[in-house]
Write a protein that binds this DNA or RNA. Sequence first.
RNA 1: GCGCCUGUAGCUCAGCUGGAUAGAGUAACUGGCUUCGAACCAGUUGGUCGGGGGUUCGAAUCCCUCCAGGCGCACCA
Length: 587
Amino acid sequence: MKAQIKQLVSDALNNLKSANILADDVSVEIVIERARDKSLGDFACNIAMRLAKVAKSKPRELAEKIVEHLPESNLIDRVEIAGPGFINFSVAQTAYQSLISDILSAGEAYGKSNYGQKEKVQIEFVSANPTGPLHVGHGRGAAYGAVVANLLNAVGYDVSKEYYVNDAGRQMDILAASVWLRYLVLCGETIVFPSNGYKGEYIVDIANTLFTQHSNEFHKSWNEVIADVPADEGIDGGDKEAHIDGLINKAKSLLGHAHYRSVFGAGLNSILTDIREDLAEFGVVFDEWFSERSLMESNDVTKAMTKLTDNNYLYEKDGAQWFRSTDFGDEKDRVVMRDNGQTTYFASDIAYHLNKFERGFNKCLDIWGADHHGYVSRVKGSIKAMGKDPEALDVLLVQFAVLYKNGQKMQMSTRSGEFVTLRELREDVGNDAARFFYVMRKCEQHLDFDLDLAKSKSNENPVYYIQYAHARICSVLRELEEKGFSYDAAIAEKSLDKLSNEHEQALLGVMSRFPEIVESSAINYEPHQVPHYLRELANNFHTYYNAHKFIVEDESLRNARLHLICGARQVLRNGLALIGVSAPEAM
RNA sequence: GCGCCUGUAGCUCAGCUGGAUAGAGUAACUGGCUUCGAACCAGUUGGUCGGGGGUUCGAAUCCCUCCAGGCGCACCA
């Protein structure tokens, strides 16, 4: 509807130009908005105010000329000029009535468009280090990314979802060492667990499996392991970093390459499998799990470094290789290769983004936790330094989620093993409530996740409010059968003029807005618009339900109303599907 | 100290990218089930849009500045 009205105004402007009332070179984007108040009509256009200056005319006078030159249309019932120069359009009732049939015949496709014209988009999200189970913070990124992907897909982009697996680097070595030490305990050793190791209970589980499968194969004595390793923190002048690095080196040297990889792999695979299953249960499925290690093995990292060297953005200092990121607004230059010859995480990331572009994605989305915001400028800088367009990458920063239980904030930290996992949250509040609460807020807003509210099966819970509207419509249709009636769409089609009361008009109005909401939330990466819209849609339905009976004696009126609520049910379903929440037929 | 995010009703948040009288939920109070599901609906109360400047026909929205909170500022990932 919006697009049709935009076209009408555009035609009017062209007519004015042919009539020499408006200069030919005048061009302004036409913005059609929903009128904020029903009494003002359905749509409003501010074009007269925007053009007033260049047209050297008063806004209201210009508005009158535009209105005079509007082409005929049976979509529009009434056009009025109001306020400082708004042109208000009232949509004909018949246009709203045919909307229902449009919705029902489109079905799941209602709300979709081909705005994106099948352009390839890659969206990378979650990408949590496989050093432990996902926690509630990752859950927000997962839900947010999955919904943005759904939305982009709905407006016609060819979306590919990707999880970047940080399976290389020091953190993974710390994980491997942690697993191995727990394993040694099972072999009968008495050890002192490093303060910087991963202390979660899941590490013990992995060690158990390792022991079950490999028995004593990787057994070394604790005395041998701890010999010559620098002291841990807390022991006169000990250093926790040096201590853990010492343990890692011991693991590597005592186990030898193959065995070390076995222990390492046991940890990685176990955790990755867990993460994959966790996300799948949450309705978040990836097209690709991209390994950081594979970038190194395929020499993509060296290739990227060569490219940077060729373009003169790399230099050597203190035995390390530095990327000149200050050329791109970063505060300081960054190391890409350490003095020990190992490349950094940042080097992998540069190579990874180059790889994305080389795979043919010219639009990439990265969804990161807000704590990584310092990375944006240097990653974009590296893209530019390699001769690619940094604008092709959008980085979305998702702020933290804070859990509240009994009004109390819950503190979490991964390393210490004290955190609420995503799985625990899902089991506690259910997938639907978790998905809904996660995407209810804009991503740049800190999220206060109220566990008690999400769990409550009461009217306070906004998820149930929307699902209840859907279930209620299903219930009406069941009741219809009970009373010996049936819903006849053909009769409904001929009786649409009966849908004339204010509640029916209001509901139709909200239903007609759905495609606009989908498009707007997709192109702005704002999933939160969907739950807000659905709440409003549900509210309009509930109001209608309370004001009028649907199962009435009058056959034409009855079918018209059933037609309307079936349309509303379809929109509820489509909207809930976008955010990954179920649409139950009964509750 | 520097950078990013946030500040709107008692609380949790929207506000369509500069538009008309700033809106929802929740809390508080009032009313509505012999009815297609009351997990619902209707109504009332509640505001210096953090403060101060500026830009213009017009600012919660854009610019500057100050205040408060969160998060970052590694040869970790």
